[in-house]
Simulated assay, not measured.
Amino acid sequence: MPSLIAKPALEGLVPVSHGGLTLSDAAPSRITSVAPFSGQEKAVTAALKKACKLGFPAPNQVLGAGGARIVWTGQGQAFLLDTDPTPLEGLAALTDQSDGWATLRLEGRGAEEVLARLVPIDLRPTVFAKGHAARTLLGHMMAVILRADDGALEVMVFRSMARTAVHEIEVAMKAVAARG
């Protein structure tokens, strides 16, 4: 009987560098989808504050504390990153998404210009600052984009779209680097 071999979503695809830009793997150790049960929103926020000094994010927001983050991903839902979701049991629908997503990190001068070629939102740091997140399109793919604490951009796409996302971003990186 054949056995499956677990492989990271971005294995062999990154890192990629062009000009002063670098695209790398930013995979969190754990991704849990959190959707508070009806009437449990305040209890979820209280449990998050007690367990990891986070609350439930407002639309288009990322909250972080002590290495853990929670990212708004849509109405009534968020991704809890790099922390144990056990304190939320019974308060929210919790789904492990760790193997379903690829997370890319784009950094360097011109990162916003790269993604401006692919996404329909304004990612300039004055508009899309630290703590911002957006669920949007990256080319033809659904993506979650967030501004990391250090100013880099993180792009989350479905694992099945990892190769396409890397290709699209790399093409845009080359174009921006060629102008520099």
Rank of each mutant, 00 (worst) to 15 (best):
S3P: 06
L4F: 15
I5N: 11
A6P: 02
K7N: 14
L10Q: 05
P15C: 09
V16A: 08
V16I: 11
H18F: 13
G20F: 11
G20S: 13
T22I: 10
T22Y: 05
A26P: 01
A27I: 00
S29Y: 08
S29C: 03
R30V: 06
I31N: 04
I31T: 09
T32I: 10
T32D: 04
V34L: 09
P36D: 01
F37E: 10
F37H: 11
G39I: 07
E41G: 10
V44R: 01
T45M: 10
A46C: 04
A47I: 03
C52I: 13
L54F: 08
G55F: 01
G55M: 01
P57Y: 12
P57F: 05
A58D: 14
A58P: 02
P59Q: 08
N60V: 01
L63T: 03
G64A: 12
A68E: 12
A68G: 06
R69F: 14
V71D: 02
V71H: 05
W72A: 01
Q75L: 14
G76C: 03
G76T: 05
Q77W: 02
Q77P: 00
F79R: 06
D82P: 01
T83C: 11
D84N: 07
P85C: 06
P85F: 08
P87N: 02
P87T: 03
G90S: 13
G90L: 10
L91Y: 12
A92V: 03
L94S: 09
T95G: 00
D96S: 04
S98V: 10
D99K: 15
A102C: 10
A102W: 10
R105G: 00
G108N: 11
G110T: 10
E112Y: 09
E112R: 05
E112T: 14
V114S: 06
L118P: 00
L118I: 03
P120F: 13
I121C: 07
P125K: 03
T126M: 13
F128A: 00
F128N: 01
F128M: 01
F128Y: 04
A129D: 15
A129S: 13
A133I: 11
R135H: 12
R135S: 12
R135L: 06
T136G: 07
L137W: 14
L138D: 07
A143W: 11
I145A: 06
I145Q: 07
I145P: 03
D149C: 02
A152H: 08
L153F: 04
L153A: 03
V155M: 04
V155L: 06
M156W: 12
V157P: 03
F158L: 09
F158P: 00
R159H: 11
R159M: 02
A162T: 02
T164C: 00
A165K: 03
V166A: 08
V166G: 08
E170P: 00
A172T: 09
A175N: 11
A175K: 15
A178V: 07
